Simulated assay, not measured.
Amino acid sequence: MSQTQVWVPPGWPETVHPPGAPGWEATATEFLLDCCPADYRRYAVLRRHPVVLARFATEYVEGQLASSRSGLSQVRVALAQHVAPEVVESAASAWQEQTAQLTRTRRAVSLVEEALRGRVFVARL
């Protein structure tokens, strides 16, 4: 690997340039804003300070993930008497997919936050 290449770990978001690349913080900011509620865009401090935005995004996504895990653990019991069994299973499947997606998003947000805080990722041989 040449000295000009930057390694990013698995789970790094595709839309975010590697740390140190031209415009990387701008792509990180857009990615993080996309992970948050739309009204986060109105706060200048979040747009101007990506590391602050990363902290907000981390907390927001962690909250979504915790809620999704809780909902998944309860969906079968909560719906069993209200809809057909195949609907319950479809709902559980949808919740599993959402939980998996949020888990991937949480990893990506975490990696971006670490990079914004100065971590340099090194490939392990």
Rank of each mutant, 00 (worst) to 15 (best):
L111H: 00
E113N: 02
V83K: 09
E89H: 08
E89C: 08
E89N: 06
Q81R: 09
A80F: 14
W95Y: 13
Q101F: 03
E113W: 01
E113M: 11
A100V: 01
R106W: 13
R104T: 02
Q98A: 01
L102H: 03
R107W: 00
V112I: 08
P85L: 05
V109G: 01
A115N: 07
E114H: 07
T105D: 12
T99G: 06
A115Y: 03
A84I: 05
E114Q: 15
Q81Y: 08
R104D: 10
V88M: 10
Q98P: 01
S90D: 14
Q96S: 12
V112A: 08
Q81N: 15
T99S: 15
E113I: 00
E89P: 02
R104I: 04
E97G: 07
A84M: 10
R106K: 13
V87N: 08
Q98S: 13
E113S: 06
V109W: 02
S93Q: 13
A92I: 02
A91R: 06
S93H: 06
E89Y: 04
A108G: 11
Q96H: 08
E113Y: 00
V112C: 05
A91Y: 02
A84F: 00
E86C: 08
S93Y: 06
A80K: 15
T105R: 15
A115R: 00
L111A: 00
R104A: 01
S90Y: 03
E114G: 05
V112L: 10
E86K: 11
V83C: 08
A92V: 07
A80H: 14
W95G: 12
E86A: 15
V87I: 11
E114P: 06
Q96K: 14
A94G: 11
P85W: 08
V83Q: 13
R107P: 06
S93V: 04
A115L: 04
S90P: 01
V87D: 06
S110N: 14
L111Y: 03
S90R: 08
V109Q: 00
T105N: 11
A84E: 07
S90L: 14
E114I: 03
A108Y: 02
R107L: 12
H82K: 09
Q81L: 13
V88W: 11
S110C: 07
A100H: 00
S110R: 11
A115V: 00
L102F: 00
E97S: 03
R106N: 10
R104V: 03
R107V: 12
S90H: 09
T99N: 09
A115H: 03
Q98E: 07
V88E: 03
V87C: 05
V88T: 10
A108E: 02
A100M: 06
E113T: 05
V109P: 05
E89L: 14
Q101L: 00
A92W: 11
E114V: 03
A108V: 02
A100S: 03
